[in-house]
Amino acid sequence: MTPSKPRVGLFVTCLVDMFRPTVGFSAVKLLEEAGCDVDVPMDQTCCGQPAFNSGDNASARKVAAPLIDMFADYDYVVAPSGSCAGMIKKHFPELFADDPAMAARVQALSDKTHELVSFLTDIMKVDSVPAEFDGKVTYHDSCSGLRELKVKQQPRKLLNSIKGLEISELSEPETCCGFGGTFCVKYPEISGKMVGDKTRDITETGAKTLLAGDLGCLMNMAGKLAREGSNVEVRHVAEVLADMTMAAPPIAGKEGE
C-alpha cells in the first residue's frame, strides 16, 4: 500500500449487506481501480434513516452514533447509495444538533462522506471505466442522491464511457419510484400506484436493463417489474460500471435470466 492512496471506509449500507453483496464488491472494485485503499469496518449496521424518518430520533441516534467513531480515521466514507450517504452527509448534523460535544466530529464525518459514483467522478476524477456492456439501459434518478447530493450527470458520464452501452432516458427520470423507506409498507396502495407509473415509463424506453444508484428503489422497481412479468433486468449502476454483471443474477431475477 502506498501512503498516498486515499483511505476509504466503505459504508456498505444495510440493504446491500443483506440483499446484494455484489453491489458492495462492485463498489470495492471501482474504488480500488480509482486508486483508493478500501476498508470495511465490520461493526457497521445501518445509518439510522428508518428511525430518523419515522420521527424516532432517539433510536436513530442510537444506531447512527457508533458510525462517527468507526469512520473517524478514514479520509473518505463512501456508500453505494445516495440515500444513506445523504443521511450521513445532510441529516447527521441535524440529528446531533443538540449535542455540541459531537458537533465537530459529526461535521467532519459529514464533510468526507460521499455517494459512490459522484465520489468516483467528482473527487477521484474518474471519467471512464473499462467495463463492457452491450445494450440499451435506462437510468432512474433516486430522489435523495439527486436532490440532496446533486447526483445526476455523474452516473451518465461513466455509463456513457462504456462502449456498446446506450442510455435510453425515462420520460420522467426524476419522479420518485414510490419506495420511500417505510412509506412503501405504510401506504402500499400509493406506493403501488407510483411504482406502477414508473414501470410503465421504464417499459416505454425499450431498455432491457434498468439501473439506479440506490438498492431500496431498485428492489421496489425490480419487485414490481417481476410481478408484472417484465423481462427488464434490474441492477445497481455499480455492477455495470465495475463490469460485475456476471457475479449475480439481476435483482429479483433468477440465475441465467
Partner: peptide, 16 residues
Amino acid sequence: GWTDMRDFPAPEGKTF
C-alpha cells in the same frame, strides 16, 4: 404491505 403490490427480491444468500 410489500408483497400485495410487488414481488420481494430475494437476497443473494450470504451477507456482504
